[in-house]
Design a protein around this nucleic acid. Structure first.
Lengths: 330, 330
DNA sequence: GAATTGTGAGCGCTCACAATT
DNA sequence: GAATTGTGAGCGCTCACAATT
């Protein structure tokens, strides 16, 4: 059996409340007893049972994250940013992937009930309001890349719309006249914002053929095959994210079509694969690791009441990164 | 204030133990009262407080994972496999990255104390024995890709050594006479096994120049630059993992050196980047997602006592995948 | 007497308050 | 009287046992 405060108290010859006081520094304790307690803790390898603490309404020391996915470069970077931020404040991280399914999302939420002090939630297929209905405002929540209409919510966003506006201007600059647009999941607000940004910005002389996708490599690949066989063939493929752009590029290269000489390709997210693919991929950089760390920072501030009403900042502006895949003038 | 069993009991006009019985199906309850309890639970949106439950020595419903890293394709796939397996058994996942530092590893372990029912641990830079000294055998542990000399431990491994033996034979077959070997972290047993497998298998006529690395893209890139300027230049670069192989390949391509015509390159891990890089990368496939799911399966079995003494299987055999990057005969 | 129900103790802590120096 | 210490209750549950039908 693991030792408890009673064991420590007995060994140090003090009462359990003295042990508690030493452990939490919650009241002055004589130097003599403090030393004995610490010695006993050391001897017994005592660690307080977190369940007992959280039962008393204390913090659990854990932060939960619910994300659409856990795999893939984008989410790995996101997770890494969360982990970094959480370590800095000595919290623990509990994660769950919703797979973009409301059922899984609710299951994750219920699972984390009373197990976490706060939540970082990315749910572009839901809205912040919908999520709050589900959480019942029992814990502080910071939203990441999630649509919200209510002001004053804690959230970290980035400007999906404007990022894609930059792509649209760029390919217009390059003289393209026919573009294929590979979209993201239709229920995801970030995918919608990107698509709108694109469609609203392209000049009249640039014809857009939309293809539906889901942010996956596979959808990019399949759409790429369709696109290269379409007629008249577009001169550029604009994908809603890097992964599907790389899929499309793969389809083109496998069929001997040169990028960017015959068809240009662009992505979105700024993943490392986009940097190191051949040809390297033009994209919009989303510093998701940093943004995730910011979200943790906001949440921790909220939890420690240091700045209980931190107003949410504007969505982060994203930078266009032009690379080989769209370097040719048409 | 969130509702408790008392609130439910009051509303259903029963005692709290009847509520508990309905919730846990631990004893027969009359149909009438059962219905009333369930109705009250529904009305009040009651969810039992997990802290109270785990205080009674009950399961926490959480599985912890401590991994060297959380980012990168390999670990993202690993994490995804864990998440998949854990969801299947309705557990929650708590994760922490040790960054290969013993200090961080211990911190993660302490943080998870009494918060998890079991642990999946990957610590190639430590050993299973060292880890068990630290955990103090207070929770069941399943090891993943971690060195162990004690038989009977729960572990999931894969044959790093043999995987690299296959690479060595392959490049000998291709007629190479000079190879550069980019290693992994020297304290990591998987990196050691791979390097040994390679060095012990290459024929006498094949000269090997070792370069030290750390499994990162950057180390591959830097070593790649060194290698291409070395004289006599090797005809093949064998990297301890895909990421560093891709880094090396990048350095070669940037300097106008053709792969595989001038220098061949091989990796290890079987990541998707290896599949889709240009040229595609010869590698050894490590089905890490599947292996991670197996580890969860083992752990869950152990926790449910279904097969309390499952003997560990042999390390999984890995498959060589020959692709463009080593397709040329020398 | 068998089925169902309720009462009370206790898991390991922290906090208010009383008791001790 | 001020500083330090201990006692007892209680957080929200489950389980053993007693009490009820």
């Amino acid at each position: 059996m693991d030792p408890t405060v009673h064991d420590v108290a007995r060994r140090a010859n003090v009462s359990i409340s003295t042990v508690s006081r030493v452990l939490n520094n919650s009241a002055p304790v004589s130097e003599d007893k403090r030393r004995r307690v610490l010695q006993a803790v050391e001897d017994l390898q005592f660690t307080p049972n977190p369940a007992a603490r959280s039962l008393l309404g204390q913090a659990t020391g854990t932060i939960g994250a619910i994300l659409p996915h856990i795999t893939g470069e984008f989410f790995a970077d996101l997770l890494s940013g969360l982990d970094e931020g959480i370590k800095q404040h000595e919290y623990l991280l509990m994660v769950s992937a919703s797979r973009r399914l409301e059922h899984d999302f609710i299951a994750a939420l219920q699972g984390m009930y009373k197990r976490v002090d706060g939540l970082v939630i990315m749910a572009p297929e839901l809205s912040a309001e919908r999520v709050l209905t589900l959480t019942g405002s029992s814990v502080p929540v910071v939203f990441l890349n999630t649509h919200s209409t209510t002001p004053g919510m804690l959230s970290v966003n980035f400007n999906n719309r404007d990022g894609m506006v930059k792509i649209a201007r760029h390919i217009a600059d390059r003289g393209h006249k026919r573009a294929a647009y590979i979209g993201g999941p239709s229920d995801a607000f970030d995918a919608q914002e990107r698509q709108q940004g694109f469609l609203e910005t392209v000049p009249d002389g640039l014809k857009v053929m939309p293809y539906s996708g889901d942010f996956s490599f596979e959808c990019g690949y399949k759409n790429g095959q369709k696109i290269l066989n379409s007629s008249p063939r577009p001169t550029v493929i604009v994908a809603a994210n890097d992964l599907s752009a790389l899929g499309a590029m793969r389809a083109l290269l496998e069929n001997g079509i040169s990028v960017p000489d015959e068809i240009a390709v662009t992505g979105f997210d700024g993943t490392r694969s986009a940097h190191f693919s051949t040809p390297s991929l033009t994209t919009v950089n989303v510093p998701i690791g940093q943004l995730a760390a910011n979200a943790v920072e906001l949440l921790v501030n909220q939890l420690s009441n240091e700045s209980p009403y931190e107003s949410p900042e504007k969505p982060a502006e994203l930078e266009l990164i032009v690379r080989e895949s769209s370097s040719k003038k048409y």
